[in-house]
């Protein structure tokens, strides 16, 4: 009967993981720095990941729920305030109306949301042959395999499709993509970006960096969450021992053995 708890918990896990698996090939496993009980982001990796996003992904993929100020916030890439101001001001933001009732362009400020590559979804589809490049803000949480899946898709372009698979025009074979077909051509090749910290920009390296960055954009408070979580559980463990001892003491009034 005591195993009942375990049965229930494992069943929940099994049930929820069923749809995660199946379908496509199992994604590659990466030993991310943000995994585990004390997982933290690697700042340099997040900064590199932002560079990959900005120079490669951002030409098609929006990042609607992020603001430039987020880039300097604790637990993220932690760019300096000055760096964030410089990044923000490199973008043109449509603002207004001014006193004359006209919209105008100005340099970006840290408070501004990330500039989207297309004004709306229809424009995005029109520019991409009907495919809509999804918004990347919460992409890692919106895909069943999470970070591993995103990384795998970026790495999944190498192999040739099986001979029985018909690949249409404007569609690419991807080993890890759900359904194995993807409308995005291989986004990263060796040397797509030049890292200022001297890291070698291999496809694998860039994929890891940008995936780590996307994990942060999807879950900006991950570090704080794990930190508070550890303290909370530690507290609860100590408290449970105290309550247990109190309980024993109280019940000892009517029971000699328990």
């Amino acid at each position: 009967m005591r195993n009942f708890f375990l049965v229930i918990l494992t069943s929940i896990f099994i049930c929820t993981n069923i749809f995660a698996a199946g379908e496509a090939t199992k994604p590659l496993k990466v030993d991310w720095s943000f995994n585990g009980f004390f997982g933290k982001f690697d700042r340099a990796q997040l900064q590199r990941g932002y560079q990959v996003y900005k120079e490669v992904c951002a030409s098609c993929h929006s990042m609607r729920y992020l603001s430039y100020r987020n880039l300097s916030e604790v637990g993220g890439p932690e760019f300096s305030i000055a760096e964030v101001k410089a990044i923000a001001s490199s973008f043109q933001i449509k603002d207004g109306p001014n006193e004359d009732g006209e919209m105008f362009e100005r340099n970006g400020l840290p408070k501004d949301r990330f500039v989207s590559p297309y004004p709306n979804e229809k424009a995005a589809r029109a520019a991409n042959g009907g495919a809509y490049p999804p918004d990347m803000s919460v992409l890692v949480k919106a895909r069943a395999g999470g970070a591993n899946y995103i990384y795998s898709v970026l790495m999944g372009y190498d192999e040739k499709p099986p001979s029985n698979m018909k690949i249409e025009e404007g569609v690419y074979y991807n080993k890890y993509m759900a359904g194995n077909k993807i409308r995005m051509s291989q986004p990263l090749v060796d040397g797509s970006v030049t890292y200022s910290d001297g890291t070698k920009p291999t496809v694998s390296q860039m994929s890891k960096d940008v995936t780590a960055f996307l994990t942060w954009t999807a879950e900006p408070h991950l570090e704080k969450r794990k930190r508070i979580g550890f303290k909370t559980i530690l507290y609860l463990l100590i408290f449970s021992i105290l309550v247990f001892l109190s309980m024993k003491k109280i019940w000892s009034r009517i029971e000699t053995k328990m």
Binding site: Y235, F239, L242, L245
Partner: peptide, 13 residues
């Protein structure tokens, strides 16, 4: 003592 300790820790929580 044990009851006071438990109560105190509980209140802090």
């Amino acid at each position: 003592f044990i009851h006071i300790a438990t109560t105190t820790v509980g209140v802090v929580g």
